[in-house]
Design a protein around this nucleic acid. Structure first.
Lengths: 193, 193
DNA sequence: GCCGCTTATTGACATTTGTCAATAATTTAC
DNA sequence: GTAAATTATTGACAAATGTCAATAAGCGGC
């Protein structure tokens, strides 16, 4: 167990950029710490998203809710990763998506203002952010490809291959709307071999 | 008509970062110029993508071809924008997607090596790239949302609202696989009101 | 540990979308 | 300008997926 809630973030930083202890401390100082309950909502749709989160443990879900109450999961943010309602956080405009913690989670968060200040102050921070953006962008491209080229069964199989832990960990209701299929269809895919 | 093929790129740069003429010249020197024919293939699937392109005029299409010969358009890159087979260019691994110029086009291109050299040499370049990544990432998030929450008709209507020029300009066959629907389905959407 | 709520499964059916095929309309290449 | 190739449209049907409903199973909160 890490002695402070900042251990994992520091590890993430040293893995991705060259940074000395002093800078690490300066970065961490901008982050606040929070534990959440199961299904706690961190951002309501319609609000401007003020924070970007780093997940120490647990799982955040970025999701949309349509007028009929149907939910769609845009992204899942697991341990050791950054996540936010990106378009809202980046542009500081009202969010289409909400953020909830699916399970009790332990997170750090930094405000948009402080985040930008780090960008302007430390070139290393911009580099780190850029690397993260590249990875997330590539992940989103792969997701688009799976959505336009594969049927429901193929997408489910792909997820089983690339991220079986997610399927284990999350209720299949959420896996279903992450894949863009109904709960019933996913249930049938799983049973009918 | 611009006097050199670099006019538009320069305009793009000054719009996005503060940069002096000397730097502009240094940036442009890294780009080569090329005109393409209709349907010319710039990258074959399976090859590592060596370049990122800036489109002066015309249109590039990043697309995938499955074993049955079905094509899916991952992205369309129009005038005044950067584009490449991003995962391959970024990771320098074989590309799932191919690149073609749908129509006769006028493009600039820079190698992965030179691009990274600019990143390392000019903080302004990393900033510019980061801003571009943010925009492209947001666009891809919106595309994912449209794919998981909307049916074919809604996606088509969205495209008509957000980018009617694309629908005008491109054959509906390509619009169809960009939307992730068959040509016939799109044709029916258009006729049946 | 139990109650109650949420989630998962299954069936019947409706709807959407895809596939195949034939034909018409366009467009390209020469 | 014309022939050939590509693209678009339409019909008939098949396949995939969604919706609604009923029931079963699982799990969280106390």
């Amino acid at each position: 167990m890490p002695s402070t809630p900042y251990q994992q973030l520091k590890q993430y930083l040293v893995n991705n950029i060259s940074v000395d202890d002093e800078q690490l401390a300066a970065f961490c100082k901008k982050f606040r710490h929070k534990t959440t309950k199961r299904n706690e909502v961190l951002l309501q749709a319609g609000d401007v998203c003020p924070y970007i989160y780093f997940v120490n443990s647990g799982c955040l879900r970025i999701y949309m809710l349509d007028v009929n109450g149907k939910e769609s999961t845009r992204f899942l943010v697991t341990e050791g990763r950054f996540g936010t309602a990106f378009p809202s956080f980046n542009l500081q405009e009202p969010s289409l998506a909400a953020i909830q913690s699916i399970e009790p989670s332990d997170v750090l968060y930094i405000s948009h203002y402080d985040f930008n200040q780090l960008l302007d102050t430390f070139p290393g921070w911009e580099h780190l952010y850029r690397i993260g953006l590249e990875k997330d962008y590539i992940a989103s491209i792969k997701r688009i490809e799976s959505l336009i080229t594969m049927d429901a069964r193929q997408r489910y199989q792909l997820l089983m291959e690339t991220n079986p832990a997610l399927i284990q960990k999350l209720p299949s209701k959420i896996i279903a709307d992450y894949l863009g299929v109904s709960q019933e269809t996913l249930s049938r895919l799983k049973s009918k071999k």
